[in-house]
Design a protein around this nucleic acid. Structure first.
Length: 516
RNA sequence: GGCCCGUUGGUCAAGGGGUUAAGACGCCUCUCUUUCACGGAGGAAUCACGAGUUCGAUUCUCGUACGGGCUACCA
């Protein structure tokens, strides 16, 4: 007997931007699929028309593309043999399945309206105690096809009265859910209620739709967030009622991504409240115009984001931190997925991005920086340097930064002369003797034949020593003259790159501006 | 409230009866360096608590505590 081809799905609902927890779920699905040469499907679960947010679906597709974890089947990815992959477009298919369940006695029609139930809940359970459940203990006192005469049910339905289809939960059974990372979870049906499977607006609920579609799409493994664990027994029961137990997928419930400051799972609403992006891409809420930052716009590399997410909840066999996507596919294993929720660590995320930045070629980095630089160019009006210069700047700066976005503030002196100086250093170090040194240095530099960093350094040190000054004494000052502040790449490399003319100007300006 | 799932340093986490309890981020100290980083060397955990099983529990069992999830005609 051969194992069926692995088929997994990522099934978000388009109710807003995908957050990184969702992205991680997609990633693990992707890794699992690729590891076993299976299919990875994107299915859009848009059965809730009220919560539909325009643009959210495109956002999901674009996010997966940006991260390089593209499904090979589904919405936005060329569809496939089981199209359509949008549940709203599969609408007419679910009703029959719901009716089948009613006919076999596993489900029933219920006519109680939302407001009625709400009212009942308030009346029977006033002070936030355990809320009324539509279940085995209460259903016989409600308005449904279990209590109403068949003719009455028919009359109501024929007259166009709204109704839902509810599952008829057995009174006294144990349901066993086998979860690949948690083992067996056993739930007694007395704890479960008669969940709505088919809504009065003609749409299925998630519970019905996901089971039907997973079956129809031949899904072998359901890899989803832990928030679905409580409803997994319901899904198992549905497979049983449909007679699909032999092809029921394996369940895998991933630990949740928690907020770094402690409490609760990461949610879409967290936006920028947490001090780091929670979304892969920047998102503008169509209703409020509120903008939430994204990893892409914040300067993260997609492969770094993937790496960050991979390590949250999963760990490799060997001690290794940096993984390419291919390596992740190779290494990934459900056995090494943690059980407990993980708090997102923005510091480590930053560090990982830095690792990626340093490993990128100067060309790659320059390409990204070029775009950011042209925005600055419009503001400051400097002459746009050639690509060779830019690459060299990037070469120096990428060792000093975690993000390309930091390049401008870290190295604007490569493009414009300092507009202000670190006055503490100037005040402390600038004196007549040192001023004399710099004006002598200027003359030496002026006649310097090869303006290379080692030659310049030699000249600088010789000149200082000649005047009885320790080079270290004036080094910091020189840095301030050239860059305006302390810290930065190897100074003489900066000087050599800036070129003689610019360096002359900057020394000259310091000579006239710096006061003792 | 009820049900379910968790709990190893600040964070991500390895290890699943006998270990000096890995590694990474962050932090601190030192070192390298003209600076800031990088790199290198070091430092910091009575494995939530209490019982039990056992010659021996971080590892197994049960409680407790704490955290999280679910409890909609939302997904």
């Amino acid at each position: 007997m051969s194992m069926p081809k692995v088929r997994v799905r990522f099934a978000p609902s388009p109710t807003g931007p995908l957050h990184i927890g969702g992205l991680r779920t997609a990633l693990y699905n992707y890794l699992f699929a690729k590891k076993y040469s299976g299919d990875f499907i994107l299915r859009i679960e848009d059965t809730d028309r009220e919560r539909f947010v325009p643009g959210a679906e495109d956002y999901i597709v674009e996010s997966l593309k940006w991260c390089g974890v593209a499904p090979n089947e589904g919405v936005g990815f060329g569809d496939g043999p089981f199209a359509p992959y949008r549940q709203s477009e599969r609408k007419n298919l679910y009703k029959n399945y719901a009716d089948t369940l009613v006919e076999s006695g596993s489900a029933y029609y219920a006519f109680d309206t939302g407001p009625e139930l709400e009212e009942l809940r308030k009346k029977t359970h006033p002070a936030g105690a355990s809320p009324l459940q539509y279940d085995t203990s209460t259903r016989m006192s409600m308005k449904n096809s279990l209590v109403l005469p068949a003719a009455e049910v028919k009359r109501r339905i024929d007259s166009g009265e709204k109704y839902v289809v509810r599952i008829k939960m057995p009174a006294d059974e144990e349901i066993k859910v086998t979860d690949l990372i948690r083992g067996e979870v056993i739930v007694h049906t007395s704890q479960l209620d008669d969940k709505v499977l088919f809504k009065s607006d003609g749409m299925p609920t998630y519970h019905l739709a996901n089971v039907v579609d997973d079956y129809l799409m031949k899904i072998t493994h359901v890899i989803r967030g832990e928030e679905w664990l409580p409803s997994a027994p319901l899904h198992v029961l549905l497979y049983k009622y449909f007679g699909w137990e032999n092809v029921m997928p394996q369940f895998v419930h991933l630990p949740l991504l928690l907020k770094p400051d402690g409490h609760g799972k990461l949610s879409k609403r967290d936006g920028d409240q947490l001090g780091f992006p929670v979304f892969p891409l920047e998102w503008t809420d169509p209703a409020t115009n509120e903008v939430s930052s994204g990893y892409r716009e914040s300067g993260y590399f997609p492969d770094a984001v993937i790496n960050i997410l991979a390590l949250l909840g999963w760990h490799p066999t060997q001690a290794q931190e940096i993984f390419t996507l291919d390596e992740l596919v190779h290494e990934f294993s459900l056995e090494h997925v943690a059980k407990g929720g993980a708090k997102f660590d923005p510091e480590k995320a930053k560090w990982l991005n830095q690792q990626y930045l340093r490993s990128k070629s100067d060309d790659t980095v320059a390409e990204v920086f070029q775009k950011q630089l042209s925005d600055k160019q419009k503001i400051y009006g400097f002459k746009m340097p050639d690509s060779e210069y830019l690459k060299k700047v990037c070469h120096l700066l990428k060792e000093k930064a975690s993000f390309i976005n930091e390049f401008w503030s870290l190295g604007k002196y490569f493009f414009i002369a300092p507009d202000k100086y670190d006055t503490d250093i100037v005040r402390k170090k600038w004196n007549e003797k040192n001023a004399g040194f710099f004006s002598a240095l200027k003359e030496k530099f002026l006649v310097q034949k090869s303006f290379t960093h080692d030659e310049l350094e030699k000249t600088f040190k010789q000149e200082a020593t000649g005047l009885g000054i320790k080079p270290g004494e004036v080094m910091q000052l020189f840095r301030v003259i050239i860059t305006g502040g302390a810290g930065g790449p190897a100074l003489f490399e900066v000087v050599a790159l800036l070129g003689k003319d610019e360096v002359m100007k900057r020394i000259e300006r310091a000579l006239t501006e710096f006061k003792f």
